[in-house]
């Protein structure tokens, strides 16, 4: 928990400072103190202050918990090493992600990135079908069901969005056979 708060605090304050710092370069309204930079500055500095408070809370509870378990704590271990908490207090013992959960999540995110990156060039159908089939198989559906479902869902989306709602889903490489 506390290592999480420290990391959260750092990320929040760094992004807050960045937002506010960017805003300083925005032009001001003629003759007034206020301009497009005002709200980003407020949001950014607010975020930075909250980040510092979260960081402070995190460090406080880290220090206190450190008094209870002096040797087992590893100050640099937050972030990547989420799982080292053998000696951590109860609050920090949250269920950690298993290897399978990591693979499942990364596959999902990677799938979306590929989908977004190639949608316009490769086209909807050629992306949606393999995306569906791979994810379904990875998540434990057997292969022939996955393939059938992937075809079905791709066609369902095609009819619902392309034929029925007239959303111009890109055909990409299949442009010559578009219908």
């Amino acid at each position: 928990m506390f290592s999480k708060d420290i990391l959260t605090g750092v990320i929040l304050s760094v992004s807050g400072v960045w937002v506010a710092w960017q805003a300083q370069s925005f032009p001001t309204l003629g003759g007034m103190k206020f301009g497009p930079g005002l709200f980003p500055t407020i949001a950014g500095s607010g975020l930075a202050i909250c980040g510092l408070l979260v960081l402070f809370t995190g460090i406080m509870s880290y220090v206190r918990a450190g008094e209870t378990y002096p040797e087992t704590e590893n100050g640099t271990g937050f972030g990547s090493g989420k799982g080292i908490g053998s000696g951590q207090s109860e609050a920090s013992l949250k269920p950690q992600l298993s290897g399978k959960a990591w693979i499942n999540s990364i596959a999902l995110i990677l799938g979306v990135i590929l989908f977004a990156a190639f949608l316009d060039t490769v086209g909807f159908h050629l992306l949606a079908f393999p995306l569906m089939a791979c994810l379904l198989m990875l998540y434990g559906v057997n292969w022939w069901k996955s393939v059938l479902l992937a075809v079905g869902v791709t066609m369902l989306v095609h009819f619902l969005f392309y034929s029925f709602l007239h959303v111009p889903l890109p055909w990409g490489l299949l442009e010559p056979i578009a219908w």
């Binding site: 709200f39 980003p40 607010g46």
Partner: peptide, 24 residues
């Protein structure tokens, strides 16, 4: 509050109302 400011910062993206300056 951090959550609130995250939301406000996201709302700041785009052309601003006062002078039309593109932000973030």
């Amino acid at each position: 509050f951090a959550s609130l400011f995250i939301g406000l910062a996201i709302a700041c993206v785009g052309i601003d109302v006062a002078v039309g300056y593109p932000r973030y």
